[in-house]
C-alpha cells in the first residue's frame, strides 16, 4: 500500500507536505514533532480536511480507495487516549460501529468475539461500566480491540504505549507482534522503547 502526500495542506497543520509511505507490513513513524506526525494519520482517515494538494492511496483518492466499503473495514484508528462516547457503556461503545455494518443478529457473535479479544490482550473489564468510571489504560486497550473487530486493511495507531503501565506495554507489544502477521500497520510513536522493540521499518520525521 502506497500512501502519497503531494503538496498537501490540511486544517490539522500540514503545510505543502510531501511524503511517500510504502506500507508493506508495519511502518513506524518516529517523530519529535508529534503534532505533524498526528496530522499525517488524521489526514489519511479524514479527521483533518485536505485543503490543498493531493493525498492518494495506490494512486486513488482516499474516497475512491474506500469506495462502497465501510470505513472501519479499510482503516482502523487507535487513538492515543482511549476515547469512548461518555454517555454509552463500554459494551454500547464497542457495539456502535459493529451494529452499523453488520445486521442485528451479529449482536450474538459480538460477545464471542469480545471474549476472544479480551483473552488475546489479557484483559478483564465490566462492559456495563461507563467510560468515566474506568481506568484510562483499560480504555486505551479497548481502543485497540474496537477497530480489530472489523479486521481493517490498515491499522493506524497513535502512540501505542501512551497511558499504559510497564506490564500493559508488554501485553500490547506482544499482541501487536502477533497482529503484524495479518495486518498492515502505520504507527506513530514518540516512544523510543517501542520503536526499538517493534519496528522493522522506521520513518523518522
Amino acid at each position: 500500500m502506497n500512501v502519497t502526500f503531494d503538496k498537501v495542506t490540511t486544517d490539522g497543520g500540514l503545510q505543502d507536505f510531501d511524503l511517500l509511505l510504502d506500507i508493506d507490513r508495519t511502518l513506524v513513524i518516529n517523530s519529535t514533532d508529534e503534532k505533524r506526525a498526528k496530522a499525517i494519520l488524521n489526514a489519511i482517515i479524514g479527521l483533518d480536511e485536505v485543503i490543498a494538494g493531493s493525498l492518494t492511496i495506490d494512486g486513488k483518492t482516499v474516497e475512491e480507495y474506500i469506495g462502497d466499503q465501510p470505513v472501519v473495514s479499510v482503516f482502523g484508528y487507535v487513538f492515543d487516549e482511549g476515547i469512548m462516547l461518555s454517555n454509552l457503556t463500554l459494551r454500547e461503545n464497542l457495539l456502535l460501529p459493529y451494529r452499523m455494518i453488520r445486521d442485528k443478529t451479529a449482536d450474538d457473535n459480538f460477545d464471542e468475539e469480545i471474549v476472544a479479544w479480551f483473552k488475546f490482550f489479557k484483559l478483564e473489564a465490566d462492559l456495563d461500566s461507563r467510560p468515566d468510571f474506568v481506568n484510562p489504560a483499560l480504555l486505551k486497550i479497548l481502543g485497540f480491540i474496537r477497530p480489530l473487530l472489523f479486521s481493517p486493511e490498515l491499522l493506524l495507531i497513535d502512540n501505542p504505549y501512551y497511558l499504559l503501565s510497564q506490564e500493559q506495554r508488554k501485553a500490547v507489544l506482544n499482541a501487536l507482534n502477533q497482529l503484524r502477521k495479518d495486518h498492515k500497520m502505520l504507527i506513530l510513536s514518540t516512544d523510543d522503547d517501542f520503536t526499538k522493540g517493534f519496528a522493522d521499518r522506521t520513518l523518522t520525521l
Binding site: I45, G46, L47, I66, P70, V71, V72, F75, Y77, F79, E81, I83, M84, L85, S86, L96, P97, M100
Partner: peptide, 16 residues
C-alpha cells in the same frame, strides 16, 4: 464537551 474530548473525531473515524 464531546468535541473537547474528541468523541466527534471518534465517530468520524468509524465513518459515522
Amino acid at each position: 464537551n464531546m468535541v473537547v474530548h474528541r468523541e466527534i473525531d471518534l465517530l468520524r473515524s468509524f465513518g459515522m
